[in-house]
């Protein structure tokens, strides 16, 4: 299991497009992907659950990847979040 802490920097947080891109990217990996936000565990492969979590700019989150390809999955997640989803 690997995990990393992030502060969400893009202005609109995990809105429709970033959430879609994130869920689709994580869907490629065999491992479980969990976003820890406000004391809740959010399925990082589920667009619907990510939207429901209301992750905004400035939110503190942990991304936890557990299983096959966990290191690669976390690296890709980090690249997306730290890059502000290319906004």
């Amino acid at each position: 299991m690997v995990s990393k802490h992030f502060t969400v920097i893009n202005a609109q947080g995990f809105h429709m497009r970033p959430a879609t891109d994130f869920a689709n990217a994580m869907g490629k990996y065999g491992c479980r992907v969990t976003i820890k936000h406000n004391g809740r565990d959010v399925d990082g492969k589920s667009l619907m659950n990510i939207i429901a979590a209301c992750i905004k700019v400035g939110s503190e989150i942990d991304v936890v990847c557990d299983g096959e390809g966990e290191a690669e999955a976390l690296a890709e997640a980090a690249a997306m979040i730290e890059n502000g989803f290319g906004e």
Partner: peptide, 11 residues
């Protein structure tokens, strides 16, 4: 985006 919604693995 609607496609991604219906293809959501959890859903």
């Amino acid at each position: 985006g609607h496609i991604s919604m219906i293809k959501d693995p959890y859903m």
